[in-house]
């Protein structure tokens, strides 16, 4: 159990009477890049919100390392602060690039804000734009700021929700490299949600297909793409409709 970050047992999430997620069993290992693919509306973002403790499961158990199990109420702050998400559409604060990256450190009362922010900005290649106003950035730059403000707090788990949808290939390449480096050098556990199967193939070590709120298949990435057990996985990785 030591190297398991998330352990989900019969976790479901419903909004009103509409159930959007039902995961019987899922384990995410420490230090891996775990890809979750599936069509839109499959419950991928809902699953990430549960993993980020932004919402609680309607039923079932969500265990996080050895220190927290979901119990219906919100996870304590120190648990929540070990995980963060980079969203598909980042909402930046109306301040400088520097101010945005510093935010997560300031609310934690960190003492080394300057050094850490500069380090994170350097990693995403935006150090020379530190004083620019965040709202004037391009989409790719804004997403790199979002990545920097997430990395700067040194999370144990980084959740990525379609981080490169709508970005140009140059920025997609940059962001994928940064994520891969982060995983390799700091051992950060990464859960990557994407509808882009090629991105999952490039980055992830294991992948899961989510379909209509259910996990269809979980497999090491090579098996997932080259020898899927489930015909729906095979269809999805070939780019066919699987509804």
């Amino acid at each position: 159990m030591n190297n398991v970050v998330y352990h989900l047992e019969k976790v479901s999430k419903a909004y009103g009477s509409r159930e959007v997620l039902r995961v019987g069993f899922l384990k995410i290992q420490q230090g891996e890049i775990f890809g979750i693919v599936g069509p839109s509306g499959a419950g991928k973002s809902t699953l990430l919100r549960l993993l980020d403790f932004l919402e609680s499961p309607t039923s079932g158990q969500l265990h996080f390392t050895n220190c927290y199990s979901s119990n219906g109420s919100r996870a304590p702050l120190d648990v929540r602060r070990r995980v963060t998400t980079v969203f598909q559409r980042p909402v930046l604060l109306n301040t400088s690039v520097y101010g945005n990256v510093a935010y997560g450190l300031k609310i934690r009362g960190d003492k080394e804000v300057r050094r850490k922010v500069e380090g994170a900005l350097e990693q995403v290649g935006l150090l020379d734009m530190a004083t620019e106003r965040a709202r004037f950035l391009s989409g790719g730059e804004a997403q790199r700021v979002a990545l920097a403000r997430a990395m700067v707090i040194e999370p144990e788990v980084l959740l990525l929700d379609e981080p490169t949808a709508n970005l140009d290939p140059y920025n997609v390449g940059l962001i994928e490299d940064i994520v891969a480096d982060l995983n390799r050098e700091r051992g950060t556990t990464i859960v990557l949600v994407t509808h882009n199967v090629f991105q999952a193939k490039r980055l992830a070590q294991r992948a899961a297909l989510l379909l209509e709120g259910k996990v269809v298949e979980v497999a090491p990435v090579q098996d997932f793409f080259e020898a899927p057990r489930d015909p729906r996985t095979a269809a999805f990785v070939r780019g066919e409709m699987v509804y």
Partner: peptide
């Protein structure tokens, strides 16, 4: 979406509300 994103960055409810007021 700002509220969810600052909560994800580790803000308390009060810190998230202050961030929204700042915006």
């Amino acid at each position: 979406n700002l509220r969810q994103q600052v909560l994800s960055l580790g803000a308390t409810n009060l810190q998230a509300t202050l961030a929204i007021l700042m915006e």
